[in-house]
Write a protein that binds this DNA or RNA. Structure first.
Lengths: 262, 262
DNA sequence: CGATGCGTTGACATGCCTCAACCTGAGTGG
DNA sequence: CCACTCAGGTTGAGGCATGTCAACGCATCG
């Protein structure tokens, strides 16, 4: 869990590479995904034959995996690290559509061009497969198509979930829910109050939740003062009172929500 | 175009019927869809063999096509009228995920249970097909699967689009964008300033845009006072200054946006 | 005629944004 | 080793847009 503090040699390989495609952030909708890197997962799924067992490529922090509008030639699977997915608008506004975590696949739901830019938040390791290979697999192996189909449904649910979060929710609720979602990826973070990584920048979070960086800061400070969380630097978070935190998430996060979307 | 003023005999058939499944609102992302009813469309697509040529069922205003959480047994295609798709939260909050218009298909992206309730905003005519039939078609006819796949991508884009609308957008921008989207469905509404139908309730719009009913009212009154639109009753809208209206939508709506998602 | 559902408008409170100052740690160069 | 710079983060003061609460309008319906 040294993503943030890691100083990668350099990210030559991915530097300015244009490729891949995206499926946004299937991130949130999966349950029980443990571990930090993808290899930890127990799921021996379609991705192994899709992406092969080659040594993953790497991308240094801040490097783009692909750009919004570029021809979508590849799909990517994140092996380690975190990626932000965002669009820039003519007026300069940035919207972070989501974040991709280990195990997530980018570029499946796309037609011919990437819908947004994917940028490494932390040093990233990833695997790549050509779009053609995906099509071939889809045609040959019906069960792969079914899995992809399912994935897209999950994806759809995740985006809708995010939409719900943005609707009629106070800033604190949004931030707490976001923290809980990220914490869920680190086993023990919620149940045992173990420190977990919040690698993205405050501005990333703000642009993701439709808030300003200042509001994110203030709210997290408030959560800290109220004893719900503790912080060791901006990116090391610890949940100190899970019950109250989940309450602050507005109840949905504790029981249903994830269930409801299944 | 008499949807709102129509007084249907009554909606016995659909009353409390539990069935179908949903694809949310593929609504916004389609271009060039003209006409009021689905039959007007030139697209001789998969839906004809899927749904057959039977006489469409009807649902009276306010009746549910299916309920959130109910087993998803059918898919529906809206032939005429407008449907709202929403979820209710434990705290009583309602979120309108989207609206379904003629031609839209509900229930494709669902697994086994409906993700939200679909309710007739206006008297609705619709066609129904069983989930099994969908599966059969998918297995037999690869090209149908491809179309469905495409639809889901469109769907995903539409939801993301809606998400963007909710992020860092002022109330007026959201409402104007929404108006433009609905107006797009009526040819001539934007280019020639012809009156068009805005069948949904103010509360529907509010719950869809993450605003209050009051804010929706006030903003629309402001648009009227500023000469951008005219209103003949709450549901008959006329665009009086398309240029300024599209400007108020924040530029994205005029050129890109729809393009960007293609 | 009153009841009801939906829409509109007003007065007021407040949560978030804006603008601005300052902090902190890491990298850099003398 | 220190001074400097820079990016990211934190905190504060103040304003404004939107939510809240409340009254009223206006159709429809029994």
């Amino acid at each position: 869990m040294t993503t943030t503090s890691l100083r990668p040699s350099h990210g030559d390989i991915m530097d300015r590479t244009r490729s891949g495609m995206l499926l946004a952030g299937g991130d949130y909708s999966f349950k029980g995904r443990g571990g930090t890197t993808f290899e930890d997962r127990a799921e021996p799924d379609w991705t192994s034959e899709m992406f092969g067992a080659r040594i993953p490529e790497t991308a240094a922090r801040g490097k783009a995996l692909f750009w919004e509008g570029a021809p979508a030639e590849h799909i990517f699977q994140i092996v380690e690290g975190v990626v932000r997915l965002f669009r820039i608008f003519p007026d300069g506004r940035r919207v972070v559509m989501g974040f991709a975590f280990p195990g997530d696949v980018l570029g499946i739901a796309v037609k011919d061009r990437y819908l947004f830019t994917a940028e490494a938040v932390t040093p990233v390791r990833m695997r790549r497969a050509s779009r053609e290979r995906l099509s071939a697999q889809l045609a040959e192996q019906p069960q792969v198509a079914a899995i992809i189909f399912d994935r897209m449904r999950d994806e759809l649910c995740a985006v809708q979930d995010q939409m719900l979060l943005l609707l009629c929710q106070a800033a604190e609720t949004r931030i707490v829910k976001f923290l809980v979602r990220v914490a869920r990826k680190s086993p023990g973070a919620i149940e045992h109050g173990e420190e977990f990584e919040l690698p993205m920048l405050r501005t990333d979070i703000a642009d993701h939740l439709g808030l300003t960086m200042e509001t994110v800061c203030r709210t997290m400070t408030k959560l800290r003062r109220d004893g719900l969380i503790a912080m060791r630097g901006p990116h090391k978070i610890q949940i100190r009172n899970a019950r109250r935190l989940l309450e602050a998430a507005g109840r949905e996060e504790t029981d249903d929500a994830d269930e409801a979307w299944g």
